[in-house]
């Protein structure tokens, strides 16, 4: 069953076309990687899915579980199970990480007509997830991403992923800025999240994350569209030959 269906997506920023007819289908239970050189439109693609307002969709459609996404506000998409791990997570001084995580969990539970977890239960869950990501419990008390290192911010994105348990996770360059140990921790978090009922789209420039999170499919984005798709061996070919290889 197709969880994410993107068809003929055209997107502009300030009148400049960035995506030119991108199509992609991701079935439930799979991890797809979207790779491409700088400027190919990878981050635009990730942000358009999440509903960032700076982009104009001029044609095409995006459906999650058969439901059209593009007319929905960012929070409505999140409540339907879409999650974007930000390439540059935002610092929010004065709002504690725990407060933020609980507010997000409660908002999503409410939208789903479910009972929100009790504070005690939630704190237990958050502490466990933090420990799994080798983040000290102090991180939950600190302001959201406030003063976090680059790697800590990325791990905090995965912490949110584990607590919010979305249906579709889009990870925008989550591997950038991570040393090898942090990369393994983040990869373990993503692998723990993987399940038959959800799907992951990894947006990345490099192949190295894919050594730890093995994708079912790899798509190469160039010039605003998918120019090639294949299995995991495609990543190694790209790593060996560079993106220029695709033009030849």
């Amino acid at each position: 069953m197709t969880l994410l269906a993107v068809e003929n997506l055209h997107v502009e920023v300030d009148g400049k076309p960035i995506l030119n007819g991108l199509s992609l289908a991701v079935p439930a239970g799979q991890v797809h990687a979207v790779m491409g050189p700088n400027g190919s439109g990878k981050s635009t693609f990730a942000n358009v899915l999440a509903g960032r307002p700076d982009y104009t969709v001029t044609a095409g459609s995006v459906a999650m579980d058969g439901e059209q996404l593009l007319d929905l506000a960012p929070e409505e998409r999140a409540r339907k199970g879409l999650f974007l791990a930000f390439q540059y997570p935002v610092e929010i001084p004065g709002v504690s990480n725990m407060e933020f995580l609980k507010a997000a969990t409660d908002a999503q539970a409410k939208a789903a007509g479910q009972q929100a977890p009790s504070a005690v239960e939630f704190i237990g869950r958050a502490r466990q997830a933090a420990a799994d990501l080798r983040l000290s419990a102090d991180f939950l008390k600190r302001g959201v991403n406030e003063g976090f290192s680059g790697g800590e911010k990325k791990r905090n994105e995965i912490l949110q992923l584990l607590l919010l348990r979305p249906r579709l996770a889009i990870l925008d360059e989550t591997d950038s800025g991570l040393d090898i140990d942090a990369l393994k921790v983040v990869a373990a978090g993503i692998n723990a999240f993987r399940a038959a009922h959800n799907a992951v789209v990894l947006v990345t420039h490099y192949q190295r994350l894919l050594d730890h999170v093995v994708p079912d499919r790899i798509h190469v984005l160039a010039g605003g569209g998918i120019v090639r798709s294949g299995d995991k061996s495609l990543a190694h070919a790209l790593e060996a030959k560079g993106y220029g290889w695709l033009d030849s």
């Binding site: 999440a50 509903g51 960032r52 307002p53 506000a73 960012p74 929070e75 998409r77 999140a78 409540r79 999650f83 974007l84 930000f86 997570p89 935002v90 610092e91 929010i92 933020f100 507010a103 997000a104 908002a107 999503q108 939208a111 959201v144 949110q160 919010l164």
Partner: peptide
């Protein structure tokens, strides 16, 4: 950017 970050986690705009 912070408003968008909160909304992207399911928190409504006015609550954010």
């Amino acid at each position: 950017e912070a408003v968008l970050y909160l909304r992207s986690r399911g928190i409504g705009e006015s609550d954010a």
